[in-house]
Design a protein around this nucleic acid. Sequence first.
DNA 1: CGTGCATTGTGATAGAAGTCACGAATCAAG
DNA 2: CTTGATTCGTGACTTCTATCACAATGCACG
Lengths: 215, 215
Amino acid sequence: MLTADQVSKLFPQFEAPLVEKIAESGALKTFQKDDFLMKTGQHFRNIILIVSGLVKVYREDDQGNEFLMYYLASGQACSLSMICASRFQASQLMAKAESDVEVLAIPLQKMDEWMTTYKSWYYFVLENYRARFDDLLETIDHVAFRNMDERLVFYLKRYKDKHNTNEVRQSITEIASELNSSREVISRLLKKLSERGLVKMQRDFIEIVDLQKVI
Amino acid sequence: MLTADQVSKLFPQFEAPLVEKIAESGALKTFQKDDFLMKTGQHFRNIILIVSGLVKVYREDDQGNEFLMYYLASGQACSLSMICASRFQASQLMAKAESDVEVLAIPLQKMDEWMTTYKSWYYFVLENYRARFDDLLETIDHVAFRNMDERLVFYLKRYKDKHNTNEVRQSITEIASELNSSREVISRLLKKLSERGLVKMQRDFIEIVDLQKVI
DNA sequence: CGTGCATTGTGATAGAAGTCACGAATCAAG
DNA sequence: CTTGATTCGTGACTTCTATCACAATGCACG
């Protein structure tokens, strides 16, 4: 349970009465790193608002290959939870905690109720959708139009932005998996980036030195 | 301008009062085949509901390469127009008429108004989003996980479904462009499909014989 | 310390797809 | 009919990516 103050800080765009409602009806849940917030085929009874931490949303195909779609950070909602919840549809995506994560779970009937009552909620929902839609478009852009070297750079940049660090603490195997590539390919491409001085391969992580200049 | 009866046939899920409103405030516009309903960077003043015809929604990169995202058919809305309109954002996609197309253009302030007034409108908007989101996911799936041969089969199947015909009247060059591939590659893959008896290359079109058995 | 496990680097190879070059076929317009 | 534009098929080649094989490293744990 959060106080109205805390909710208000996370979602400054919400009207005061809505903030109260959220504080009332939102159940605070915590997930540990690598816990699943959502799995393919799962149904929802709640709308999920991210309070703290970072969530990775990805697709998994029938052979277990992964493909990273986008990240969700605090102040954002899991759009899928909203849409799926409202129409009782199954999720098509996996969502996994990248760090320890706190979320507010809100019973789905509140979603409908608030949509008609609070303009700020309505805008929030639509804006969230639009943002996720744009994320998907960006992801498609890269996989459709770019080679693996550029996609890797994009991956590293996005990691840096979302995790707010220059240290990419993912094994090469994991990176390859999220790009649906293979370890060897990513290893070679990282070598090239490090030869150009754009990253430094450290013992336990990849240090991003400068990726601004490259596309 | 459509009559309430016509609107009701197209959108049977809408409540009677909403049908009236739509008939009142929706301006009927027509587009000819290959006209643009929407271009990258464009802003909206209207929400677009498709009355008849088929619309192709695709992405274009900076070098002019295309990539087909999904089709919109009658009874559907251009989700992008809804979201962009509501937030005054620019479109990231191109939408082109695949056939002659009729649409209802609805002033965007109606969107907000109806969202809070008519449950069926609210459901329609959300469901439309979800459906488009799923389309995008399916598109990503293919480009991320599948080879060009499977993507071509998917392309042909989708074409058949959406155009409701076994005759694919697209030049090989166009198909290649929409898959962001090259003419030669598609030509060879089509040859293989035709050797397997799955399609027949006719003078002016590609005849789909049987694509059910293949994935 | 030694053993097993996970991670990484790298060469060799294969396959998928893009590119280049060229010729054939079709069709519209003069 | 002739010309030019467009489309299409195909062989040769290149590039990118995936896969295989194998070795090296470092770490956890008994």
